[in-house]
Amino acid sequence: MREKLIAAIADINEAEAIQLAQAMLDAGEDPQAILEAASQAMTIVGNRFDQKEYYLPELIIAGEMMKAIGDMVKPKLHGQAAPAARLGKVVIGTVAGDIHDIGKDVVSFMLDVNGFEVHDLGVDVPAAKFVEKIREVRPQIVGMSGFLTLAFDQMKRTVQAIQDAGLRDQVKIMIGGAIMDEGAARYTGADAYGADAAAAVRLAKSWVA
């Protein structure tokens, strides 16, 4: 049943996946094992997205399946499971003034399924909030997203704030968004720009290697 669940999620067979997860739970299977199977399926979904076999629709539905299974299973979880080892930590958010979240969410998803601990601050995130979170979780990587051109200056301000807080040397900073490019990375003072989620994962992996 476990293999079937993984296949159903990975193939985006929504109804089947939810039924299987419920059946496994009803049959008394370890809730933690069900969650792990779902996570494993998410990695397959991420790989298929990376291979351009899947696109946003599949990612969105996979994310919703994961959430539904999580909601179903969590009340039955006894005690805290040991957190899986992670490649590194990422603090990510859409910069202040901009409320666009789709690109940022895709990057968060892909970093997560590729083994990073992702702290997603959401949208319209002020520079001070980035700084505060960096102090708190000590990430190796900071990701800034922006869809509007106002993000050029806001990213620059955010990088400056990280610098002023004395944290710039401790983090690598990547930026992303439809209008971003190498020129924007230079302008904002970020270390690099990623054209898409796959590029973000490649960058992140290269920075923690």
Partner: peptide, 9 residues
């Protein structure tokens, strides 16, 4: 014409 060039160039 890239907006970043119009802003930062």
């Amino acid at each position: 014409v890239p907006n970043i060039v119009l802003l930062g160039g």
